[in-house]
Amino acid sequence: MREPMNVAVLLSAGHHPVSGRACPVPVEMQAIGLGNALGAEMTGLHAGPASETIADALGHGLARLVHLKIGEADDPLASLIAALGTEKSALVLAGRVGQGGEDSGLLPYALARALGLPVVPDASALREGPEPSTLLVEQALPRGARRRLMVRLPALVTVHPAAPAPLPFAYAARRRGVVEERAGIASPRGERAIEERAYRPRPKLIAKSAAGASAAERLKAATEAASGGGRVLVDPPPEEAAREILAHLRDIGVLRG
């Protein structure tokens, strides 16, 4: 029996996509679930201004939360580097893109660089490795494929939404959980030549629909296959139909053998 691993989970100040209210980021709650599945000693880590909802992570299976208090305009990176330096976590878990800041998803990478940790992105499952201080990571790839990686700890792993669903929120668990408030490090964000304005959704590019085409044509372009209209077999005998279908499936490469 190995000693339980020390795992830190980075929690960001999420917002509900519809209501805009403060809300935990689902993938970070999934990260808590992955850490719990490892039987790890878990600590939540949040750097930001005071917020009620950050503590909601305690309801999803987290026992302890360290809240580093910094101002609205401060960069959380410095506070997190300092805190993780003292926490001595073997594993740092984070969502792919934290919320509450610029949503660039750069923070885990910058943090890992500063702490000298390797980054493994998009974990959907974690297991202890065959040797001490190694970790088996199942990485989610597009189209349901997976990649099994073995990494040496300590490491920073970001979690993919394909990880198991988070534990449902338990009100009493949130009530029981402990929040440690600490002062963070004030480090104002550097100025960048970026203009900011209210978000305006941009139309997604629709291939093949010419400007000025009729509504019916645009709908067709939106729902039609990239390959365009295909072959039609009218009332073939079932055997012939089956042969044609299998040949076609083989042609496009979805059927092997």
């Binding site: 509900h16 519809v18 209501s19 209210r21 403060a22 809300c23 909601d56 449902p168 929120f169």
Partner: peptide, 12 residues
């Protein structure tokens, strides 16, 4: 229930 907590509407 999560949607109800953060959006006051069960389907969000």
């Amino acid at each position: 229930l999560a949607e109800l907590r953060y959006a006051d509407e069960p389907q969000g």
